[in-house]
Design a protein around this nucleic acid. Sequence first.
DNA 1: AGGTCTATTGAGCGCGTGAACAATAATTCT
DNA 2: AGAATTATTGTTCACGCGCTCAATAGACCT
Lengths: 219, 219
Amino acid sequence: MRKAPEERRQEIVAAAARIGLTEGLERITLRRVADDLGVRSGLVGHYFPTAEDLVTEAFTSAAAGELDALLPETAGDRSRGSAVRVLQNFLARLSGPVFDDVSRLWLNARHLSRYRPVLNEGVVRQELLWCRRVEQVIAAGVAQGSFRCEDPWEAAVRVIAVLDGVNSYTNTSAQQRSAPLIDMVRTFTEAELGLPRDALLPHGPAADGSDREPRPADR
Amino acid sequence: MRKAPEERRQEIVAAAARIGLTEGLERITLRRVADDLGVRSGLVGHYFPTAEDLVTEAFTSAAAGELDALLPETAGDRSRGSAVRVLQNFLARLSGPVFDDVSRLWLNARHLSRYRPVLNEGVVRQELLWCRRVEQVIAAGVAQGSFRCEDPWEAAVRVIAVLDGVNSYTNTSAQQRSAPLIDMVRTFTEAELGLPRDALLPHGPAADGSDREPRPADR
DNA sequence: AGGTCTATTGAGCGCGTGAACAATAATTCT
DNA sequence: AGAATTATTGTTCACGCGCTCAATAGACCT
């Protein structure tokens, strides 16, 4: 039962992140995490003297992990493939229902940040990290001659803003809005980067535009 | 001290709405509202046997009141002025810091809806109401020949989505994103409605395009 | 083997919450 | 005027929360 401090700590954060991602950050309590791990709540309190620190670390772990899955750190590196393909994959993954939990998590974290300054700091850091990662991909695409874009940073911020807007309704009226919003992030990104329509469709045209796949227009 | 039931009920909802708008919906508790009104918590519980109903009604009151202030019900009526002017005023009011509380409220409500089914229903109703109100203005503008737009409903949903996206960061990194986002809602709306650049600037060009006011381009 | 360190326990405190309910006082009806 | 109604009070309950802390027990070192 007794484990090395570092291992136990990671175990606690992992359990907390799982709870935060699937059930909400306010469900991360000392007792709840302890129960999931089969230990006493006092132990969790031993590793995280203030609960807010645990919540913050749990969110950071979940958000950073998801970003790495969506846009690996080396995604901007041109040796890993064209920026167009990277964005295609990125946008494709956003549509899946698995991303709903992530949307909920961001909504959760952004609201909870209103009351929790430590969490607030962590959320801001992750928000900027996500934008910066997208910015790198856009900058790489501009360098490759695939995108036309004055300011990659501003484009990235705007694309993420549309993404967050579309995902605002996961808990509420997502169903009623699906038709107008289903392709909005991709369409907006294409316009922002000076790309032809449907250029960012998954498995659509690559940088050379060779394998174009027809699709009905959505607007 | 003793008041007519209807009056007392409205008083309670008004107090709860004020708390929800300024301090957050989870600060609406029986005791808190009772304290603000100088009564006992049992009384509030008498009017709202379950607290969730009070929170829901408080949110509904605040959201509906704000919508009426932003886009009066008759805004779509062409007798009240051009749709262009109505949208100009609407967009102008969104920029003010007074709207920050409203953004926070929406964020709050959308997250809390994850756990509270009754609130969820109320939030969905308000979300659709806001979209429908914008849709009416757009439809009026199309009828006036001011806008070019295939589907007013879809356009409204998309405009509101961008609005919600931009306002997602009021609690967190709003400061760091201000530059790329400051005019994004207006710019997107102009594009969505087939309007020339800056056509929706406050006190900008009316439908006839007579009183155009120069402004530096923002993109 | 004995001693030291510390991960882990177990129990408890104070707080704020939603909810319940009998008692009370003001209003209204007959 | 008297009775019925009900708005309002005052109190209490059980719950889950973060947090504290002395006691325990497992691991490592000499």
